[in-house]
Design a binder for these strands. Structure first.
Lengths: 220, 220
DNA sequence: TTAAAAATTTAGATTAGTCTAAATATTGTT
DNA sequence: AACAATATTTAGACTAATCTAAATTTTTAA
């Protein structure tokens, strides 16, 4: 069985692998986890010993199949618990990340699938992230960043790539909830900020920084 | 904040205090936790340092108010999660103890009260144990051990003092669920075993050992 | 293509929780 | 009351996860 700490490393490496598609650097793990690089190196040796990662000194790491399965199982738990917290306990979407961070390490094997069934096999968590099924398969999202769209285009806000409380609260205050229809009116030459129309009525301006974290789906 | 391990010690000391009413011995903690007495001594020093227990060398320990509050909060979480697992996820009463043992250490402070509300403020867990309210107050149960009842007396099975899977499965197989009406017919002179009639129909014989773990309430 | 900068690893130390073996205190019994 | 049995604590060691400081490797850029 893997420790709490090992699980967190695997999860971090998984997230970095998805973005980086190539080996993941020691420093990037260190930065994301708030640990020193020397500590990361120690753990990488341990995870390699357990066949959870491929590790070559100085060359960065990638997950083995075993490591990937483990990481996905943790992410599945995290996202299912987030759904539970929001749908059943009435938490807001900006409050659940840290709690799910604890709950994702609960080991009991039957618990996950029962929770999944209880929640009605949800496909996405409250932030729009897809929930892998019990075989570890993700339903691929065809997301495009709002920051990459062109003036005149329209889409549905379907996910966020930044989960911090401040960002999520900001979105909520602006009326930018998942499912909101957004038309990109104009991009300001001065600072790259975006002028939007949401739900075909309300006008709104947001920073380029914010737009880089909004994941859009084209309307069907 | 207290560690996972510290919490487990406090919980154990609380349970032993209730039974023993007097200071709790190092060895009894050691035995219940499956640790060596030397390890217990080390932890007792640490808990005393944090003002969670009163500790005098060689004289055993008792909880301070702070320690008691902490222990009760953990027990509250444990029992609420057990209700969740049985009522919402469909686990059986003999399957939930170990899972709740993990869940009871989830820290998020708002979680407990929301869970409590979601479950409808249950007063007892699936094994009949009372769930303390958010102020740490227990609803006192007027239990009497089946093993202490006299032939001819009747009561309602309302709790168990042994939570092992084998025992709970045994009870279930015999039809001894919480809420069952039990009449004690006769106590066998030979081995002290008890002849019962349950739900005014079915006859059943159980060992004295088993009867010592069955908590009864008088009928209203 | 080589020297400086950046990234990574090694070496050695620290803390929490555990252990064994030995020492000490308490209890029980004659 | 004194000794044996039992309970508890101390001393010293180990593992997991972390750190700092120093050493080494890789990358970058002149």
């Amino acid at each position: 069985m893997n420790s709490f700490t090992e699980e967190n490393y695997l999860k971090t490496i998984f997230h970095l692998s998805v973005k980086a598609d190539g080996p993941v650097a020691t420093n990037s793990i260190s930065e994301l986890m708030g640990n020193k690089a020397a500590s990361v190196t120690d753990m990488l040796k341990k995870l390699a010993e357990k066949d959870l990662i491929h590790y070559v000194k100085y060359q960065g790491v990638s997950l083995t199949n075993k490591g990937k399965e483990t990481a996905i199982a943790i992410i599945r738990k995290h996202r299912l618990w987030e759904v539970f917290l929001v749908e059943k306990l009435g938490f807001k979407w900006d409050e659940v990340h840290d709690i799910a961070e604890e709950l994702e390490h609960i080991k009991a094997p039957e618990l996950v699938d029962r929770l999944d069934a209880f929640l009605g096999h949800p496909s996405h968590d409250p932030h729009g992230d897809p929930i892998p099924n019990s075989h570890g398969e993700f339903q691929k999202n065809e997301w495009i960043l709002l920051a990459k769209m062109n003036p005149g285009q329209t889409g549905i806000l379907s996910g966020v790539s930044e989960h911090s409380t401040v960002f999520l609260q900001y979105l909520e205050q602006q009326g930018l909830l998942l499912g909101t229809r957004i038309k990109l009116e104009e991009i300001m030459a001065f600072d790259g900020s975006l002028k939007l129309v949401i739900n075909q009525s309300q006008s709104l301006s947001i920073s380029r920084e914010a737009a880089k974290n909004l994941l859009m789906l084209h309307e069907n």
